[in-house]
């Protein structure tokens, strides 16, 4: 088997040493794969991806990007290595213009490629191209999310991680976001997606991983997970009656 795009090895992470939230997760994503991370509230999904991105203290275990160990690299260096992260909230600079948001991210590229890369992204996101000098704080929710994704793609990452990109969006706009992610994935970018919107996420994903209590509980191909009763059960808690469907 080839080297995965990204993998974690017995990862333990959290905000306080005596209270790890991610409690030993082995997790790996193949090159070109779109994996969705699912789980009930507090399962540690968000903490897992933040730890991978370098925002949460890692107590033990390892993270590898391709065959490189990036466990202890600070957040800004992980970007240089090809790992891009889109947080759930506050994921754009509201006091900078749309164009400045892209410029700030493009700063780590070689000087001569910066403007070409930004025009490529404007071509991909015509909504942003239409308003480059608008302050990002004045964008709509969907546009903000698109800007955040565009900003992350600037560096042409090998792995793109998104924390609940559909949160707070109307179903129609969320569908747009998922469509965009699917097409980005089809260009060869590996994507890890944390989502509450189980159905929509599984619809575009190759594979789903379910976390409970900071551990990996279950996983499988997206197509089979969608109808898997275990998913519904894990979501609603073991003490509830299992036959609930469509969680």
């Amino acid at each position: 088997m080839s080297v995965p795009a990204l993998s974690t090895d017995a990862l333990v992470a959290g905000y306080e040493r005596d209270l790890p939230i991610v409690r030993g997760i082995d997790f790996s994503v193949g090159i070109g794969e779109l994996v969705v991370v699912l789980g009930p509230n507090g399962a540690g999904k968000s903490t897992l991806v933040k730890a991978i991105a370098g925002l949460v203290t890692i107590h033990s275990g390892a993270i590898r990007l391709g065959d490189r160990d990036i466990t202890s690299a600070p957040a800004h260096e992980k970007v240089h290595q090809g790992l891009a992260f889109v947080p759930q909230t506050e994921n754009i600079f509201t006091t900078l213009t749309v164009h400045e948001n892209l410029l700030v991210a493009a700063n780590i590229l070689a000087k001569e490629t910066r403007s070409r890369r930004i025009s490529e992204l404007y071509a991909l996101f015509p909504d942003l191209a239409a308003r480059p000098s608008l302050k990002a704080g004045q964008l709509s929710g969907g546009q903000r999310q698109m800007l955040a994704v565009a900003r992350a793609l600037i560096v042409a990452p090998s792995v793109l991680i998104l924390d609940e990109p559909s949160a707070g969006l109307s179903p129609k706009v969320a569908a747009d976001v998922f469509r965009t992610l699917k097409s980005i994935n089809e260009t060869g970018v590996t994507i890890i997606l944390v989502e509450q919107n189980v159905k929509a996420a599984l619809a575009i994903a190759h594979r789903g991983v379910i976390l409970v209590d900071g551990k990996r509980r279950h996983e499988g191909p997206a197509a089979t997970l969608a109808g898997d009763p275990i998913v519904a059960e894990l979501y609603l808690g073991a003490h509830r009656a299992p036959p609930a469907v469509g969680a």
Partner: peptide, 15 residues
Amino acid sequence: RRFPAQEIATDARKP
């Protein structure tokens, strides 16, 4: 009080 809100939510759910 030091528990992150999410963890409290999980704990409350435990039987």
